[in-house]
Design a protein around this nucleic acid. Structure first.
Length: 99
DNA sequence: CCATTGACCAGCT
DNA sequence: AAGCTGGCCAATG
């Protein structure tokens, strides 16, 4: 398997996410540059199951949670982080702004 | 404010 | 080569 070279930067960005904030695949893609949101999403899906990265804080740009194998776990992790999720959606005010 | 639609996207199988 | 993704954005109602 071949991991793209931008993944290290992706991991660092995700790892630096403040505890009570979320971000989107697209926002990360922009912050990295030259990659698309779906590539970021795929990279998240490839993370090992026991990763320490807060992958659960990466959601869709419209605030809804994407549908994938660990979606339920994602919701409970967000709630455990103190990030409210109602009707499968996180409010915009919890999005992190990259500088 | 929310939901839907359609064009665009890149990496699989 | 067709079809499916952990998506995004703008436009629309």
């Amino acid at each position: 398997m071949h991991t793209p070279e931008w993944t290290e930067q992706l991991y660092q960005l995700v790892d630096s996410l403040p505890r009570h904030q979320v971000t989107s695949y697209g926002a990360l893609a922009k912050a990295i540059g030259g990659v698309g949101p779906r590539q970021v999403a795929r990279a998240m899906g490839q993370l090992p199951e026991d990763t320490q990265l807060p992958w659960h804080r990466v959601i869709r740009s419209d605030g809804t949670l994407a549908e994938h194998a660990r979606a339920d776990e994602q919701e409970s992790r967000l709630l455990a982080d103190g990030i409210p999720v109602s009707r499968n959606r996180v409010h915009r005010r919890h999005f992190h702004r990259f500088n």
